[in-house]
Write a protein that binds this DNA or RNA. Structure first.
Lengths: 336, 336
DNA sequence: CAGCGCAATCGAAGCGCTTCGACACACGCA
DNA sequence: TGCGTGTGTCGAAGCGCTTCGATTGCGCTG
């Protein structure tokens, strides 16, 4: 089943069929109809390789999903799924690369013209893949923001603003000493952009408002969370507000606080930075800044498509955080 | 940078370069060396589309990852990553399809010759995608086993044997009444193969050994787990052994048991069906049947490659379960 | 009413690779 | 010496599509 079969069936030339499909030249309505009908009747599907060869476009983008230690897989997959969905909306497919292949994988899929562009997730402040991406002639978009963004295209939630928003919310409720329960240590050690920026925003806002702040990295295991919370509240008994930026730690954290005989939010207020589903399925539902994975993934795809269309998109797109008050943060309790 | 550039540089014809690369005809060592050197010097990378067009092979396989309600995303990703890794070992890339595209997506990637074969995860007993897969001329492999396997190629852990092994282990320890804490109800409702087979094996083994058994589907939320455990042990006070086949429920389950004043394994023995990392990071480490995602994914890829090479692989490959005793299952306590 | 511009279509030339048959040459054997 | 047999290499013909220029026929305009 080739394009020439369709052409014969519709009584036109192959090029006409091609133009009907691509819309790159005007075709009379009558001809278009006949061609589309023939395509339908014959069940024609163009050969992807032939198309890629002739047009120099594969209609495939690469997505690098780094399943590194410390990352929360379900959230990473929310990003990935939204990239796939958005790509499909724009007639593109997604080739899955793992971090295991490293920079060589990027060079390979670009060099063989297997993909038209690349989306990279989980960007570190000084990411090893960036020089490679710069050296490629293929466009790319980073989900996450590195230290040096010149000439790159990045998109992410504005984690600094998110950290600020959480601190500000607690400050406005009257809390005078707050703490951030953060990502696992390994995430900071490899200097993942989003984690650092959250911490920076949180600290800066607390400082500007003249309230005390602490940051505690935290592994996901419930025992580790309990230890972190116990240690924190032991050392700093004045802490009445917690920000948690660590999805799997959310539930253990609530347990740990209660285990210490404190109520949420009566004694301790909690604000999360997490996807809405994580924040709403706890009891009480958490006041949170939502992590709009859907939107970030979609935006990454549109930015990449813009670059494919030779538009020059902005270097850094930061989505503003939205803090949704729910039931886990309240006014600071009166001093005992 | 084309194959003819390499040919010129090495002083041979393009076809010779092609044969060096594919190994499909014998080439003298001297010529091979020169060609490989030229490739190296020039940094030649063949154009994937051209290759696919000429050879009728894209060297890409499709992977359908269905992120449906109730599934445990980290485990699903273990499968996906092992598929990608194994595919790369065999010079193939992986195109990521989500369930959202449905059967149309399968027809599309096969019909456009975008992929050479398809791997489908999370197969249901009566899976809607199977008729489509049968109608395709492309080979496919299912991870999971449907009701009717004729003409298909399936691979999975032998969940029935796994269910049996858990029941047998507890029976051998003297337990007379045991229960399976299962997957979320939605997983059974859509009749996912692995969940049903585990239940069947568990029940059959218990029955054959003349001991009591119960099965409790269970959502992942800690409160749901606690409710399920409390309800179960309340209604059936004789239960002393639990099998848990639900990764996110593992930790909450241990908490719930302890919350009822029972010790693991002194009062209640627990056996998990879960990946090793889930089973070992609890306290105490769990006696478990491991879920060999790595091996299943790798096997799925080799089976697919066999089909691409026109070998006729077996219809159903079930990997035998391995039960590893750790610290969570012990002899049934003496009656009070 | 000649000439122009535009819309619609066609034909042919690639895109960069694989593969088939042909060929040249060396070797061993009769 | 002549012939078969292999081995290593080449040339050319596609694979199925896109795209560029050319061509046709039309309605208008000056």
């Amino acid at each position: 089943m080739r394009i020439s079969d369709v052409a014969r069936h519709a009584g036109v030339s192959p090029s006409t069929v091609s133009y009907v499909l691509s819309g790159k030249r005007s075709i009379s309505p009558a001809t278009r109809r006949r061609v589309l009908d023939s395509i339908d009747v014959l069940g024609y599907q163009p050969h992807a390789g032939a198309r890629a060869l002739a047009s120099n476009r594969s209609n495939v983008i690469a997505l690098v999903v780094p399943l590194r230690p410390g990352i929360h897989v379900p959230v990473a997959m929310q990003f990935a799924v939204s990239v796939v969905t958005s790509a499909r909306d724009r007639e593109h497919d997604v080739l899955l690369l793992t971090q295991a292949e490293g920079e060589g994988g990027l060079r390979r899929v670009a060099g063989t013209s297997m993909v038209d562009g690349i989306i990279v997730m989980d960007v570190e402040v000084d990411d090893a893949r960036i020089p490679t991406l710069r050296s490629l002639s293929h466009p790319s978009v980073l989900i996450g923001v590195p230290a040096e963004t010149e000439g790159l295209t990045c998109v992410d939630l504005d984690f600094e603003a998110a950290g600020r928003a959480c601190a500000a919310h607690l400050a406005a409720l009257g809390h005078r000493e707050i703490a951030l329960i953060g990502q696992p240590p390994s995430v900071y050690e490899r200097r993942t952009g989003f984690a650092e920026r959250t911490v920076a925003g949180f600290r800066a806002e607390a400082h500007e408002r003249g309230i005390g702040s602490a940051v505690v990295p935290c592994d996901a295991a419930p025992t580790a969370v309990a230890a972190a919370v116990t240690g924190l509240l032991g050392e700093r008994p004045g802490v009445t507000g917690l920000v948690v930026h660590n999805e799997p730690a959310v539930a253990p954290l609530l347990d740990a606080v209660r285990g210490l005989g404190r109520e949420v939010p009566a004694d301790i207020s909690v604000v999360a930075i997490a996807p809405d589903d994580v924040a709403t399925e706890t009891s009480p539902p958490l006041t949170s800044v939502s992590l709009p994975a859907e939107e970030v993934g979609g935006r990454a795809v549109s930015l990449l498509m813009d670059k494919l269309d030779d538009l020059g998109p902005p270097e850094v797109t930061l989505l503003p955080p939205r803090l949704v008050p729910r039931a886990s943060a309240a006014a600071r309790p009166a001093l005992p």
